[in-house]
């Protein structure tokens, strides 16, 4: 990492936007959990860098009306105990080691957009909005659009917006080292008891998190929404449909060093069934259960 060209350290968002406008495409440094190793190994060339670590406003998180807003530089550790967002907190707790959770950020997860990213999978299930800011101002993109189009070279991700939970949500994951490692397969399930629907995303199985739409519809139709309970055979079918969704995903990952593809779809089905059992057990009402 010798010979860093320049490192700019803006103290405010507006200064960061100006800096980025002056050198579009510069590397953005927040937690550095992806960038620093890539620079060390030479996988990424060293060029201009903008550190976002001094911008306090990017670390803010809060609730307003129906929305939760999480600043792009909020770390996993910041989110791990957040009672307003139990699914997000569960996801944050499952990421890596304490060292990674203390430094890795929400914006970094979106910037890297690793198909195995824990947070990305949950954000897809939560149908999150991504706020990007550039010289012409702010705009909000749905997570799907963000992943498809990304953002301009003069823009940066400044926040993520989530609807306030309207039901239980969870994030389950299979990864080596008793899940301390990146997921082989993961499942985020968000239940909306007001709108009577669920959203389910599977991570680690394709080039981006896979939404299991048929499985979601099945739950919406078979759940008893007055109690929030899903009959056991419907939960079982939900697992099967999720496994199918993984198998038929357009760019599903093949066999690799972590697992054969067949294991991934099997594991996704098991996790989905478990997630449904946790979130759609009935009796507990709309209380979000923490894993």
């Amino acid at each position: 990492m010798t010979g860093v060209a320049t490192m700019r350290r803006p103290r405010s968002l507006s200064e960061a936007i100006d800096t980025l406008a002056a050198s579009p495409g510069a590397d953005l440094l927040a937690g550095g959990t992806d960038l620093v190793p890539a620079l060390r190994t030479g996988a990424r060339p060293v060029r201009e860098m903008i550190s976002l670590r001094r911008i306090v406003e990017l670390r803010a998180r809060g609730a307003a009306g129906d929305w939760l807003t999480i600043g792009a530089c909020a770390t996993y550790a910041d989110l791990a105990g957040w009672s307003l967002a139990p699914g997000l907190a569960a996801t944050a707790r499952s990421v890596g080691s304490p060292q990674i959770r203390n430094t890795g950020t929400v914006g970094g997860a979106l910037g890297t957009a690793s198909p195995r990213g824990d947070l990305l999978t949950f954000l897809v299930a939560a149908d999150a909005g991504v706020v990007v800011t550039g010289p012409v101002g702010q705009r909000q993109l749905g997570i799907g659009r963000f992943l498809a189009d990304r953002h301009g070279p003069d823009e940066l991700v400044t926040a993520v917006k989530l609807a306030r939970p309207c039901g239980p949500q969870t994030y389950l994951k299979i990864g080596a080292r008793q899940t301390a490692s990146i997921p082989v397969a993961s499942c985020a399930l968000v239940v909306d008891r007001v709108r009577r629907l669920v959203r389910c995303a599977i991570g680690g199985v394709a080039s981006r998190p896979v939404r299991a739409l048929a499985a979601e519809d099945h739950v919406a139709e078979t759940a008893d929404w007055s109690t929030g309970a899903l009959p056991p055979d419907a939960a079982h079918r939900f697992g099967e449909l999720v496994a199918e969704a993984v198998t038929t995903a357009p760019d599903v990952a093949g066999d690799d060093v972590y697992a054969p593809a067949a294991y991934r779809s099997h594991a996704a089905g098991v996790l989905a069934r478990r997630a449904a059992a946790r979130c759609l057990a009935g009796a507990r009402g709309a209380d979000a259960r923490r894993p």
Partner: peptide
Amino acid sequence: PARDRPGGRGAQAD
């Protein structure tokens, strides 16, 4: 506790 079951807290083994 789930963290002491196979797969740790993330997998929530039954």
